[in-house]
Simulated scan of single mutants.
Amino acid sequence: MFFTIKESEFLSEWKALIGELIELCFSVSKIVSPIVNSKSPEGIFPTELVTMQPDTVNSEQLKNVTPQMLLVCCWRSMKEISLFFGDLVRLLPIEHETLQEHSYLLSSAQVNQIGDYFVQHLFETRHRGAFELAYIGFTSMCETFWKCRNGLYCDQTLKWADHVLNLIQTEESKMKLCSTRRGGGLPYFVQAIVSTELVQNGRKTLSKCMSVLLKLVETKVDDADEENFSQVLAMYILSALFKDTRLGEDVLQYAEAALIAAINGFDSVFWNVRNASTLLFSSLINRIFGVNRSKEEISKKNSQIVLVVILLLK
């Protein structure tokens, strides 16, 4: 923690100010969320916002506002809120983590509220700019939680991981999660939790996630009446995990099974499975062979001899 209050008489004032800022952020988020959470955030006209938020917005305020202006203002508002929340959790003393009992600036209730904000935002947001920046803030939060001395916060990251793994396997996922736009913020949500886990923990969360996700992608659905929602989401998440350089060599042990699942997905009768398989395959190729090292020789591709590839996939 980098922020400390040396004079205790100012502690209550700081707490009050931070509390007001958090509530203000939640109020702004409530107004702009319908836009960035829309299935087509780029196509919402300002007049539609009046219908969505009749208590906070009136048509007179939106006379000269274009759809582009509306979208930019909304997703940038979410961006600043996400980054602000991430910095709050990362920099401020939080309850149960300070040496002195009452010297914290963020209560556990406020921390939980911020966590709920990130969960909802990453699950429901469709606008790429909004959930990519939310990922940065949520990553800061997860990094802080993994390092906390109190097991309360560390356990919360495990609960989030369990929650998302259970959710993508249920019918409820179709209502709460985004199957288009490469899964929206869902892969980022899992990536933030898994990639920030301390190495000394043995990457247990990574192992658990990979076990569940690989099982889902290996499930072959041929009947057109059956749902493949979970399979597609699992492929999107795996693609994000294999792209993450912070996972290093730890993720390579799962490359063989993922590569087989991706290739098998090319034969699926469903277009969305074939598309997700292509993305997963591309991520695996980059992870195994690396990106092109030479910017000058664009025709020269990275390569590995067969023996090295076999050793990597073992």
Rank of each mutant, 00 (worst) to 15 (best):
E7Y: 10
E7N: 15
E13N: 15
K15I: 05
I18Q: 06
G19P: 05
L21M: 14
C25V: 02
F26L: 09
I35Q: 04
P41W: 02
G43T: 09
F45T: 13
P46A: 01
M52V: 06
Q53M: 11
D55E: 13
V57D: 00
V65Y: 00
Q68L: 10
L70P: 11
L71N: 07
C74D: 06
M78E: 15
M78A: 07
E80S: 14
L83D: 05
F84Y: 07
V89Y: 02
V89H: 02
R90S: 15
P93R: 02
I94R: 10
T98E: 10
S103P: 04
Y104G: 02
S107V: 03
D116G: 07
D116R: 00
F123Q: 08
H127C: 06
G129K: 01
E132Y: 03
E132P: 05
L133K: 13
A134L: 05
F138V: 07
C142K: 01
C142N: 12
E143D: 07
W146A: 12
N150D: 15
Y153H: 06
C154V: 13
D155Y: 06
A161P: 04
I168C: 05
T170F: 03
C178P: 01
C178A: 08
C178N: 14
R181K: 13
P187A: 02
I193F: 07
V199W: 07
V199H: 11
K204M: 13
L206F: 00
M210S: 06
S211N: 11
E218P: 00
V221R: 00
V221C: 09
D223W: 08
A224H: 10
E226D: 15
E226Y: 07
N228S: 12
Q231R: 15
L233Q: 15
G248V: 04
E249T: 08
E249Y: 03
Q253A: 01
Q253D: 01
F270T: 04
S277F: 08
T278D: 00
I288Q: 00
V291P: 03
R293S: 13
K300S: 11
V309R: 02
K314T: 09
